[in-house]
């Protein structure tokens, strides 16, 4: 089983990202589970969302304490939230930022990967919404999930133009991670 923890701020679509990841993983033929960290949702407040992906049906209902992967939607969270908490040593932490991984002094053995998802979002979608883009980067950086499955999940959730743009942005982020070239 692979466990993914998403850190974001209320309004950034972290819960949606976790859900889309579960939908995409299921399309890949795996079992999946996505749930929010049950905050009193307010715009801007730090929130968490979780996704589990497994070859077997998933019974475990606890939050995720030792994630294989961490996705950070907003690098300013790192000042107040221990995003690396419990991350597995052979895991990966994917951060949305314009800066390079060595900028961040995280207390972890997990690999830190950065991507300027906000820039991609502004260029392709025209709004700084990064949740779907980070899923494309996740697919590229981890190989845990097919980028096409992410694109399909995005297109199903956001029909029409919005979905098309998001799907393009997903693919761009996937390529930026050096995947599918």
């Amino acid at each position: 089983m692979k466990e993914i923890r998403i850190h974001g701020r209320g309004g950034q679509g972290s819960v949606t990202a976790a859900e889309l990841l579960a939908v995409a993983a299921f399309e890949d033929g795996k079992y999946s589970q996505a749930f929010p960290a049950f905050g009193v949702e307010r715009r801007g407040a730090p929130i968490m969302a979780f996704t589990r992906i497994s070859e077997q049906p998933i019974r475990l209902r606890s939050q995720i304490y030792e994630p294989d992967y961490v996705i950070v939607q907003d690098a300013t969270l790192i000042e107040t939230v221990d995003v690396a908490s419990g991350a597995k040593p052979d895991g990966k932490i994917l951060i949305n930022t314009e800066f390079s991984p060595d900028t961040f002094d995280l207390d972890t053995e997990a690999e830190v990967i950065t991507i300027d998802a906000t820039r991609i979002a502004l260029d392709i979608i025209g709004r700084p919404i990064v949740n779907t883009i980070l899923l494309g980067a996740f697919a590229g950086a981890t190989g845990e999930i097919k980028v096409k499955s992410i694109q399909n999940a995005v297109a199903e959730r956001f029909p029409g133009k919005v979905g098309e743009k998001n799907s393009l942005a997903v693919l761009e982020a996937y390529h930026r991670m050096g995947a599918g070239q």
């Binding site: 976790a18 079992y31 999946s32 996505a34």
Partner: peptide, 12 residues
């Protein structure tokens, strides 16, 4: 059903 844990979970 357990609030959030089941009401808000996405699963197959």
């Amino acid at each position: 059903m357990d609030g959030f844990i089941l009401s808000h979970v996405f699963e197959p």
